[in-house]
Design a protein around this nucleic acid. Structure first.
Lengths: 123, 123
DNA sequence: CTAAACCCTGACACTGACGTAAGAGGCAAG
DNA sequence: CTTGCCTCTTACGTCAGTGTCAGGGTTTAG
């Protein structure tokens, strides 16, 4: 599959896919004329990359822990594994933080709705 | 209280506090010589701003829904309230997404730990 | 053969919340 | 008074992922 199809199937832009390759996060084979070619499993790989990007990981961090995702059978380096644990904890804290933020927003919504309702009645 | 103390008490940088003011998110009174002065409640306000920034809101968005936070007694505009609902939903989706990411990371951790343990035994 | 749609590299633009540095003034303590 | 620390404004720098444009080949359908 060529880059355009991979883009359509993952929702990533063509630009992003080339960027991922530049960051060594996504490999492609080239046709004789130089066009990138991808295999089926690259769809999942890109979706995985997007998931990590969305969670706030940087290219460098993703690169570091990729061996844990795609080569767990050989013993991955301690550094990679440490990074993995570390990022899991970061995501964990981020979730806690967001939950508290959601609670704060919910309280605001409740308060405002109360005021809006009471004013609606009085008009 | 002057800007340095507010910074220390909130964990925000002095630069950030000036930036918040520039974005109309934080007000200050000035001494005759032009130095910013803050009141106690500004500590909470800054903490609240930081919370929203951490949740991925932009300055413009925060500005839009601030009336809901600090002036719920008067009927806040529909636009502000809509924004509030919208951002709550966004945070909600973000949490769901992060939870799935955490699950993925947890699976990776489990898989890798298994491999690491088995190799540790065989050495 | 040709048009349309696709792909290539290279490079600059952008966004947004800050960092940071320069040059200058303000303020409390010794 | 002065030393040291705080604060002021102005303004340019940064980072990271991505948009976008230019100029040029490639592939495919008709």
């Amino acid at each position: 599959m060529r880059i355009g199809e991979l883009a359509r199937r993952t929702g990533a832009s063509v630009r992003s896919l080339r960027y991922y390759e530049e960051q060594d996060l996504l490999a492609s084979t080239r046709t004789p004329s130089g066009q990138r070619t991808y295999v089926e499993s690259d769809v999942d790989r890109v979706l995985f990359l997007q998931r990590l990007y969305a969670a706030g990981l940087t290219s460098a961090t993703i690169l570091e822990l990729l061996p844990c995702a795609y080569d767990p059978s050989t013993r991955t380096s301690d550094a990679a594994f440490d990074r993995l644990l570390q990022e899991r904890d970061r995501v964990d804290r981020q979730i806690d933080d967001l939950v508290r933020t959601r609670e704060a927003l919910d309280r605001m919504i409740t308060t405002n709705r109360a005021h809006r309702d009471s004013l609606a009645v009085s008009r």
